[in-house]
Design a protein around this nucleic acid. Structure first.
Lengths: 167, 167
DNA sequence: GGCACCATACTCGGATATAAACTGTCCGAGTCCCTAGGG
DNA sequence: CCCTAGGGACTCGGACAGTTTATATCCGAGTATGGTGCC
């Protein structure tokens, strides 16, 4: 009743970030199937698979079909930013898309691109740029190091967790 | 096919911002009906009314029923930030809502609030804070002044536009 | 014993249903204005 | 001529459908593997 509508980010973003972070703790070349990744957090496997495919198309993950196949990081953790992952899932477009409302109002609008000149559009774009900059400043390697510092047992738990899971 | 899903802001936000900005150019105490505000940009009147009500609930607009009624700004333009308007339409919650995925993974999670401690959640929250800070730094008065400087004829056009419209 | 071939089981990949949210619309409650009647 | 009461019209406000988007699922195409038969 009070909040008419809420802008929200797909929950798939959180899934993707956690799974990518988990993949940083595997041995180089080792792959994990979508089924195991899903089981790790009790997520719906088929739907998580969809997100993983989006990450693969974006060049963040590599996929191998067949037995002993699965997903692994396509680049070093230092070269994958949080922004990369978010953009892969949420799409490259910005949250605010100027409809050029001003053009539909009175006055002369000959050859003016209000997506660039409209001061409201500029404000929204500047804010979104600040958001992107923050996310682009953090890499998977940063997250990895932070977690390892706070709780050194996590890497081992994750590796053993994947190995132990029965699919 | 390529972009699975896109985080997008409601178009109502753009409507609300433009209409609020237009209201800054009215004489103090003067009110404009939802029908006229809609006609100004050729928007669906009943749906715009919905957004205006949200702005009224948030204390940004004041509404007067009956003849000669309508909407007007409830505060001075200097005291209304772009963030206020966005929050009124999109809701006060953040776009990224931590589901505490980690809690569903292996390990001990006794009495830990991962919405605060999870490094991924922290990163997303920090980015969203930067976004909010940018939007909170711009007021309707700032937008008003920018537009008037670039195009001094706009205020008069808006006033005359509202007066001329036949509903 | 070594090698090549084949059947098999396992994996990803995209096409397909279901649920939720946004968008759009309608009609009723409340309020102000204008008019008409009376003092 | 002024005041007052009533009717009417106009406005917002919240409740009600239609359409797009996100969520969840299933089955088929492709590949490495392991076994088997042949040389």
């Amino acid at each position: 009743m009070f909040s008419i509508q809420i802008m929200r980010m797909s929950e798939g973003v959180e899934w993707a970030l956690h799974e990518c972070l988990n993949l940083t703790w595997l041995e180089p070349g080792e792959a994990v199937t979508a089924a195991r990744l899903a089981k790790f957090y009790e997520l719906p496997a088929a739907y998580l698979n969809k997100q993983l495919q989006a990450l693969a198309r974006a060049g963040i993950l590599e996929s191998t079909p067949g037995p002993r196949g699965g997903f692994r990081l396509a680049r070093r953790p230092e070269d994958i930013t949080v922004m990369d992952v978010v953009a892969a899932i949420e799409g490259p477009e910005s949250a605010f898309r100027c409809q050029e409302l001003v053009r539909r109002g009175p006055g002369d609008h000959e050859g003016v691109d209000y997506r660039k000149t409209c001061s409201i559009s500029q404000t929204m774009r500047r804010a979104e740029l600040a958001w992107r900059r923050e996310l682009a400043a953090v890499t998977l390697a940063d997250l990895k190091e932070t977690v390892e510092t706070r709780n050194p047992t996590v890497p081992g738990e994750v590796r053993r967790g994947f190995a132990r899971l029965k699919v």
